[in-house]
């Protein structure tokens, strides 16, 4: 049984294209109000999964509930369900003859609880460009417009498919702030990303997907046993660099200190980064 109370609940989801499994029995549960990130290599089934949740694709089998409704056939009516969700797609490239402000004001009419278009423009940092035609926007500015269009309807769930691709570091940080603001307002956020630092900075929980299956779901700090993983202690001795993996780095360093009778040359202790863990999980390292 899938839970009625979760924002998103997926059980045994399957979808294949031409006999090849894109999603192979995937389970997922996203609580209301959390930022949930899906990480995975290209072809892992991220986009297929998200597009099934968004109601763009039909599944072969499995149970899916988004806000308590089946995206394929919401019993309250498709448009009523769509009024409650926001979608930021991976690539939209409008012809661009309308201005930012015209586009947002128009989209605001679609929703029953639309936010004020001008304040949304401010929120995504496009105030200076509000009268500019979309065609004249840079890649990053277009992406911010995509986000603005995704949130204009005050969605209960926001889907973000690789939202910060093409952002400079400053714009990414501003975008992360925006996402946290939305979460603080109670919006559930499901995001797919290639960037591990993005997942680490934003997500309450992360699911790693590979070959159409969820490998693990955990908070970024705990993913892959990261918190309890062996630490690597490295130092220099007799002109050579040495390193040792250990589960008890403190005792190991104490012993080293005794041996060196004081300072240990070039001492460093490191835990695996999220990237190390992730690459190990998807079998790339």
């Amino acid at each position: 049984m899938t839970s009625q109370h979760a924002a998103i609940s997926v059980k045994g989801l399957r979808k294949s294209y031409a006999g090849k499994d894109a999603v192979a029995g995937l389970d997922l549960e996203v609580a209301k109000g959390e930022i949930f990130a899906i990480l995975g290599p290209n072809g892992a089934g991220k986009t297929t999964t998200v597009e099934i949740l968004e109601g763009y694709r039909k599944r072969d089998s499995g149970e899916v509930l988004v806000l308590g409704e089946d995206p394929e056939n919401p019993h309250s009516g498709e448009l009523h369900w769509r009024n409650r969700i926001g979608i930021v797609l991976q690539s939209v490239n409008d012809a661009g003859d309308l201005s930012v402000s015209e586009t947002l004001h128009h989209y605001a009419h679609y929703y029953s609880h639309a936010k004020d278009p001008d304040s949304v423009i401010g929120l995504v940092g496009l105030s200076e460009k509000k009268d500019a035609k979309i065609a004249t926007l840079s890649g990053g500015q277009r992406r911010r417009l995509d986000v603005a269009l995704g949130i204009i309807g005050s969605p209960e769930i926001l889907f973000l498919d690789e939202p910060t691709t093409g952002f400079d570091p400053e714009a990414r940080r501003a975008f992360w702030e925006l996402i946290r603001t939305l979460r603080d307002e109670g919006t559930t956020i499901l995001l797919t990303t290639h960037y591990l630092d993005e997942a680490e900075a934003l997500a309450d929980r992360v699911a790693v997907i590979n070959k159409g299956l969820v490998i693990e779901v955990a908070s970024p700090e705990l993913l892959g046993g990261r918190a309890t993983a062996s630490a690597t202690v490295s130092w220099s001795e007799g002109g050579n660099s040495r390193s040792e993996e250990t589960d008890s780095p403190t005792r190991f360093v104490q012993d080293l200190a005794t041996r060196f009778k004081g300072e240990i040359p070039d001492l460093a202790i490191s835990r695996p980064s999220l990237e190390d863990i992730y690459l190990r999980m998807i079998g790339e390292a």
Partner: peptide
């Protein structure tokens, strides 16, 4: 507009 993704985005709205 289907190529550009405009239609897909409209499909995702309650219009």
């Amino acid at each position: 507009s289907r190529d550009l993704g405009t239609l897909k985005r409209l499909r995702g709205t309650p219009m």
